[in-house]
């Protein structure tokens, strides 16, 4: 069922990662991604794996849940790996058959590419989506980007849109499920037939879904006005974000992480890419 999608889901908890300031988490996440792409030696990759595992432990999330986050990108991972294995040239020939020649460099770069993507997905999942509520995330983005307001960029409006989208995604998924079932009961068939036929079968789902979304939007707008919403000006927030010691500490650790990657690259230069 549609409800089972897990990518981008928040798992409430009480780990240090859960309690970090969401703004800090965004900064850390960006730094972590930079760190991943800085890795270019075998030792650095091993260090990266160790750090990712450490993050997973700190987050106190079940390993299964974290690994499930990779599921949606499995195709991309396999595709990149295959691409690297077969099309990458090199010096050390491992295996040759017909027009295909596989080099050691191809295999190693495939492995490291896979590590990169997996570390990237798991890292962002752990640091951001799994341990930060969507609302905290939008809130953090709004605050981080708020200086842009002086350039007349509608940061608040953008954040509000994000919040509402997040709020209504489960509702709309449920509704899609319901409409699909209702049309199934009227003889619609979504699982057989050619691609064109299947696309056509979606019309009876999409039209009611759009109409209901417009109706919802309309009602929500009235409800928001009734609750005195008038854009970002003059608005206060209930949750004030304050940087705590742990936030500074984690930024320091992140800086250390990047420095370590650079140092390892330099002093254990078994280059692979």
């Amino acid at each position: 069922m549609l409800k089972d999608i897990t990518l981008g889901q928040f798992f409430p908890g009480n780990s240090v990662l859960h309690r970090l300031d969401p703004r800090v988490k965004i900064v850390i996440c960006i730094a972590y991604i930079v760190g991943i792409f800085l890795c270019n030696s075998l030792a650095a990759y091993i260090f990266l794996i160790a750090m990712t595992v450490l993050l997973m432990l700190i987050s106190q999330l079940p390993v299964k849940t974290v690994l499930k986050g990779i599921q949606p990108v499995v195709v991309i991972i396999i595709f990149t790996a295959v691409l690297n294995v077969f099309w990458r040239g090199g010096e050390t020939e491992l295996f040759s058959f017909w027009i295909i020649t596989i080099y050691l460099e191809g295999v190693t770069s495939a492995i490291f590419m896979m590590i990169r993507i997996i570390a990237l997905v798991i890292g962002t999942c752990i640091i951001l989506t799994y341990t930060t509520s969507p609302i905290a995330l939008t809130d953090a983005i709004e605050r981080l980007l708020s200086p842009l307001r002086i350039f007349k960029i509608p940061v608040h409006e953008f954040a509000m849109m994000m919040t509402i989208a997040l709020r209504f995604i489960p509702t709309l998924i449920e509704e899609t499920d319901k409409i699909m079932n209702a049309q199934k009961a009227r003889g619609s068939d979504f699982s057989t037939g050619s691609l064109a036929e299947r696309a056509k079968a979606l019309v009876p789902v999409l039209v009611p879904l759009f109409i209901s979304s417009f109706r919802r939007a309309d009602e929500l707008a009235v409800a928001m006005e009734c609750r005195c919403y008038r854009g970002g000006s003059g608005r206060t927030r209930m949750t004030q974000l304050h940087l705590a010691k742990r936030d500074f500490f984690s930024i320091l650790l992140t800086a250390l992480f990047i420095a370590s990657v650079l140092l390892i690259n330099q002093y254990f230069p078994i280059y692979v890419v």
């Binding site: 079932n181 209702a182 049309q183 009961a185 009227r186 619609s188 019309v203 009876p204 039209v207 109409i211």
Partner: peptide, 24 residues
């Protein structure tokens, strides 16, 4: 017939909407 079935209507006319099932 589902709960609040009016939210499943989609055709241009009432006639076409009622005809959807028989057509299928």
């Amino acid at each position: 017939v589902f709960q609040y079935p009016e939210y499943q209507l989609f055709e241009e006319t009432v006639y076409k909407d009622i005809a959807f099932g028989p057509k299928n």
